[in-house]
Structure formats: C-alpha cells, structure tokens
C-alpha cells in the first residue's frame, strides 16, 4: 500500500490499472453496453416484467377514466331505456286504462297503439269515457286512418292523452282530471269485505231485490247512467245479496257497491254510477223506504236517512 501513496512512482498504479481482471472486466462492460444498444435487453426485461404484473396494476389514467365514464354513461342510458321499455311493456300488456295509469309516475308516459287504446277506452264507464273524448270522434279518427298511436302522460293533475298521427303530430289531445283518474283506479276494485266495512256505504245499504226493483222502475236512460255496464254484474259468480250507495260523489260519479255472496265468502264489486242517476234511484228507494217502514218493520230499514 505504501508504494501506492508515492505518486512519483507510477509503476504500482500502472500495474493495478493494467491488471488482468481490469482487462477482463472492461470488455464485459463494453459488451453489455453494446448489446443493450443493439438488442435493447434492458428495455425488454423491464417490459416483460411490466407485462407480467399488468393485471395487478390499477386501472388509472386518461383512457381508463374515459372507459369508466363510458360505462357509467351507458349504464345511465341503459336504465333510461329499460325504464321506458318497462313502461311500454306494461302499457302493451295492460287490460285497463287504470293499469296503465297506475304504473306511471308523474312525468312518465307510455305509448299505445290506436287499437289498444280503443280496447281500453271501451272498458271505461261510458260517462267517464265520454268526458274524455266522444266515441264518435274516435270513430272519425279511426276511419281517417291517420290515427296510429296514443301517448298517455301522467301529470301532477291527472292524465294527458295525445292521439297521434304516424309522425307524432297530435290529432287530438285531452286531459283526464285527477278525480277521473282516481275514479278509474277505484272502478275495478273488488274488495273482500262486506258493505258494512266500507265507511262511505254504511248509511245506504239495500237488499238486492229492493235495489233492482227500484232500478227497474227507472227509465232506461237512468238505468244506463247508474250501471253503465250491467254485463259486468251478469258475469259475477255468486249471489248478489245487497247493494250500497256511497255518500261521496267524485267527478260526477257516485260509487255503487254490489255485495256478492259465494259460499261463506262476501265480496263487494264497486261500480260508478253517474251522480244524477244515483240521486234518482235514491229518491225512489227512500220514498219506498218511508212507505215500507210501517209494513215491513225496521229489519229492512237499512237506510237511516
């Protein structure tokens, strides 16, 4: 070591510098550098390593961010389309207008074919139906062959119905007030209760034979106003035992509850009679009631008015 500290004596230095190991190491290093320049082995090793760990790394960066946005956007659109399709499917399968209406939230709409709308229209009590649109107008639109679809849109205050031409031009639009929509909703109610259980009927419950006898005494127009679709009653299985008249009127209609006994089970079918026709029947029933109080006794006095 001493000789190395003597810089005037270069021999020991040159011996070290030009030693065999140095001569062996330098070419190796040079070969490494040259091979890297030529073969890019360092890049390949790093690249191969990164390929191997690719799956363990995060999905970060602009392209993944864009992918996520695309996915989120597609999901949002998919939901919109699915919701709309669900409404459409429901509308296509609906058997009554009420089914269409009850499946829609305010602001939502459903498109029906003209034929389907006509079918639903025919099932609406004629009073409500005529308030919506005259059947003669529907006939005219049908015969003109311009009416292809109907768009029903639920609004905060009812239902908007648009009768559409093929290019979505509106042939006729009309609003069904919320009260009428509510009436539609109740129309098909068949409760598994008795009339006494329904508060609004408790004051006016009549034996069936008396109710229908009074009904028979009314003119045909009044009877139609009171029970627009009597065939519905003919269809029911069981015995009609009693009929109640509601205390409440809604949108020009009054509920008429028909109690049906089948075996031990009682059901009430709700119908909507036009208020003027119901009032006439009530007058008739109440007139008979005052007569009958003397003869038949209190057991028939269901109406306490």
């Amino acid at each position: 070591m001493q000789e190395l500290t003597d810089i005037k004596n270069l021999r020991p230095w040159s011996v070290r510098v030009f030693a065999a190991p140095v001569f062996m190491l330098a070419p190796v290093l040079l070969a490494l550098i040259a091979s890297e320049m030529k073969l890019n082995w360092a890049e390949r090793i790093v690249g191969a390593y990164l390929v191997a760990v690719n799956e363990d790394r995060p999905e970060s960066g602009a392209i993944w961010e864009k992918g996520r946005k695309t996915q989120a956007a597609r999901m949002a659109v998919d939901k919109l389309a699915s919701d709309r399709e669900a409404h459409q499917r429901m509308a296509r399968n609906a058997g009554t207008l009420n089914e269409v209406v009850s499946a829609l939230a305010p602001g939502q709409g459903a498109m029906l074919s003209a034929e389907h709308f006509r079918e639903l229209y025919q099932k609406i009590p004629s009073g409500i139906a005529a308030e919506m649109i005259s059947p003669f107008d529907l006939l005219r639109f049908t015969s003109e062959k311009r009416w292809t679809r109907a768009y029903l849109e639920k609004t905060a205050d009812g239902l908007m119905v648009y009768l559409l031409e093929p290019n979505n031009q509106v042939l006729r639009q009309f609003r069904v007030p919320a009260a009428s929509v509510a009436l539609l909703a109740r129309r098909s109610d068949m409760t598994s209760q008795s009339l006494e259980d329904l508060v609004s009927f408790q004051n006016r419950i009549y034996p069936a034979e008396r109710f229908f006898a009074a009904l028979a005494a009314l003119p045909e127009e009044d009877r139609r106003g009171l029970i627009p679709q009597p065939e519905r009653l003919l269809d029911v299985s069981g015995q009609i035992t009693r009929v109640g008249i509601s205390d409440e009127a809604l949108a020009g209609f009054v509920d008429v509850g028909v109690e049906i006994q089948s075996g031990a089970q009682r059901r009430v079918l709700l119908l909507q009679g036009q208020d003027w026709a119901v009032w006439r029947l009530r007058s008739l029933l109440e007139g008979k009631l005052s007569k009958s109080r003397g003869g038949k006794g209190s057991q028939e006095a269901y109406s306490a008015q």
């Binding site: 690719n54 363990d56 790394r57 999905e59 970060s60 960066g61 392209i63």
Partner: peptide, 10 residues
C-alpha cells in the same frame, strides 16, 4: 413506481 403504473388495456 411500477406498482402504481396504469394497467395497459388488452
């Protein structure tokens, strides 16, 4: 560093 490198799509 490579642990946080973005994954390359396939």
């Amino acid at each position: 560093t490579v642990r946080d490198l973005p994954r390359v799509p396939e």
